[in-house]
Design a protein around this nucleic acid. Structure first.
Lengths: 135, 135, 135, 135
DNA sequence: GTGGTCTAGACCACG
DNA sequence: GTGGTCTAGACCACT
């Protein structure tokens, strides 16, 4: 269910957040679904419960999940919309990367080809954690 | 000459590296040009000399600069080519971002529009440090 | 009869207590009236009987209700007075909130306007559980 | 500088957040000021560094502070405005409390008197942690 | 020195 | 069983 990369700069809790968000936005997890408990998830990933607690806390703060103490943690009603909205910010990243590549003399065609490739392989690619931002 | 952002996750030494590379690849700095000394730069940026030493060391390790002890530090002959090669890795980032956006339901057209925008404003954009990689 | 919010910080048993008190103090429930049994209420709210047991126990401890074993649970004679007395403590909360707002530069007029608004809409407002005490 | 109440429901990290915000909004702390380091504060309050880290992280997430790793943590430029905006939410609490008191038969005059009292004693009151929300 | 992350283990309140 | 808070102690990267 989760795929964690312990090496690499990206902290575990961020990976959990990102993958949870992707599962929501891609429909694997739906509003009302219950998330694995911190303890259960901590066993699955063999990570410390506190680390997962931190991940979940951040999802809750963003309004993506809601917790009912004693009952578990659930995906909120507007989770998908909230995430999609935040994902719009990725466009700014693409823009910035494109600017760098332009300056570096990389043809626009190559960049667009990369975009196409991403759209083609999305399922396979997205659930694997990326190795490390090369910037 | 350098524009650094003290707040924000990207470490100062990485910002110095990136901006130096961008200045080389965009032709502002040419092979044979001399870089400011660690001490001089440390005053310009009011940053710790160790920090800049680290940045320069990494540039040197990558073969981008060469130091003639006692004479200063210069941009290497193949600097531009080396950097361009490394920048190819950015394509993988674009691909990964595209995959995420596909899953999030963001249209391919929007992504390509962002690419176009990046290619249009490259000069203005690139020298400003980006706020934070959302990935 | 009861309106409970499962998400949100306020525990269910406190919500039951508070709403029971409000119904008493507002005259919806009168001394001698019988409360629903733990089992019945647990079905109505689809909540754990232990939770409601806890709520009732606290009401009883405060002298607001009295149970005749085997006969049910009834609202005590002085229930209203007792609750009103406890509600005086809310004045301290208002005072504390006012102090914070003063420091924050919020005008006294705005605070008083909020009080007026509360007094105007009391019926509608009070039976809905509040989202979260910001203090 | 900080006044912590270890008993009572309100967690330490929330108390630190609240008191920091109050110090900012009341002008004791100004934009650009440096906050005590997590380690220093952890000694002052004889609390665990992680606890304070959590408090500071939340302030940062809200845009109230900014951290420069290796340099310390500073109060952001718009800190005061951000907090004031959030404090507007307290008006809703006042309104809700007022509604409850109306139902409980507490005179509006008493409530307004409490507001006045709060505005009068704000300095003394606000820096002391409140004992416990009576609701 | 600074902030940030992680582990380990404990305790509490809630249902 | 659940989530939430706290402590203790460690490690890392950055300045």
């Amino acid at each position: 269910m989760f795929q964690i990369d312990r090496m690499g700069r990206k902290p575990i809790y961020e990976q959990v957040i990102e993958q949870t968000e992707l599962m929501i936005v891609s429909g694997v997890l739906k509003p009302g679904d219950q998330l694995p408990s911190v303890r259960a998830l901590s066993q699955m990933l063999s990570a410390n419960p506190n680390t997962l607690q931190k991940a979940y806390a951040e999802l809750e703060r963003a309004g993506i999940t809601a917790s009912a103490p004693g009952n578990g943690r659930f995906i909120g009603k507007d989770a998908k919309a909230l995430i999609q909205e935040r994902m719009q910010a990725l466009l700014a990243d693409v823009e910035h990367l494109s600017a760098k590549m332009h300056v570096a003399g990389i043809g626009k065609a190559q960049v667009i080809a990369a975009v196409e490739k991403g759209y083609a392989h999305s399922q396979k690619t997205v659930l694997q954690p990326q190795k490390g931002q090369s910037t």
